[in-house]
Write a protein that binds this DNA or RNA. Structure first.
Lengths: 149, 149
DNA sequence: AACCAAGTGGGAAATTGTGGGAAATCCATA
DNA sequence: TATGGATTTCCCACAATTTCCCACTTGGTT
């Protein structure tokens, strides 16, 4: 399971070290995609297989209108990149993704159960503040939704 | 069951001894997360599995499509850390968690049934005071209600 | 008093994160 | 097709941090 927060540098060649604790699980090749909320998602090959299968399956129960779905898939697939993990555990962030996430200098690398997210450090700090404040409300809400199921 | 209060030092390398009475139950690897009231929760691997399963609701593979779930997962996993218990029963508190809990020098290590909590000593003292006063008031209130009957 | 267990501290070794140079590849142009 | 330049890939090196191990101290027990 991928968990925890790490602040790593993005060097002049757009390389970011994966935290050593993640390396085993990440394997030697990963998929980087634009994520939701202005971060980047990094999936293991295995997770990506799951995700892409679910997204491309036209009979899936995802409540997308077909047009929306096409757009979303362009967003996810069209801008995804398969990148190699180098011999000492770094990945290379393609320019357009780096730009999209507003990443430069330092980046927050976050383990979120089965994927990794890469954030602009400041945005991550802000985001954390916000979710912390909302946490209690959110927990209650999820709990009540659970109850209703 | 984990019970009792211990004041332990957090040394220059961010290490804290688990009370020897807790060690057997904690195993060799635990999960540390930000808890409520600015303390840290320390779960056994087993407890964590329960907690995270209950909260993360993994039955939908694409939970990242829902904003609520994204937030919550980042909250749960992004700020947690899996840490090894060293050969003599200490754990290492990651900087970002230590900071969040305002821990330095000394920390209160509290057994709370099925998890351990780590507190800034002063905050713990205050919290205890408050609970105790509330308990007193509550007792008095109950007593006076009784008297009036 | 001697012993044991628990908590604390610190040194040495191993690992991790970072930077940068050299080799390989690609691309445009002559 | 050959050439020069730029970019990418691969590899090595350094510094800082982390990990591992051992030793000291304290307090309680026999």
């Amino acid at each position: 399971m991928l968990i925890g927060e790490y602040i790593h540098t993005v060097d002049g060649k757009n390389r970011v070290s994966l935290p050593s604790k993640f390396r085993k699980e990440m394997g030697k090749s990963v998929i980087v995609t634009p994520g939701l909320d202005k971060c980047l998602f990094v999936f293991t090959a295995k997770e990506w297989a799951k995700v892409s299968k679910r997204l491309s399956n036209t009979e899936s129960d995802l409540s997308f209108l077909q047009a929306d779905k096409r757009s979303f898939n362009r967003f996810m697939f069209g801008r995804a990149a398969e990148v190699e993990v180098d011999s000492i555990g770094r990945i290379l962030i393609p320019d357009f993704l780096k730009e999209r996430a507003g990443i430069a200098g330092k980046a927050a690398v976050i383990g979120v159960e089965d994927r990794v997210e890469i954030w602009n450090v400041d945005m991550w700090a802000e985001y954390k503040d916000r979710i912390e404040k909302e946490a209690d409300q959110l927990a209650e809400k999820l709990a009540s939704e659970n109850r209703q199921q």
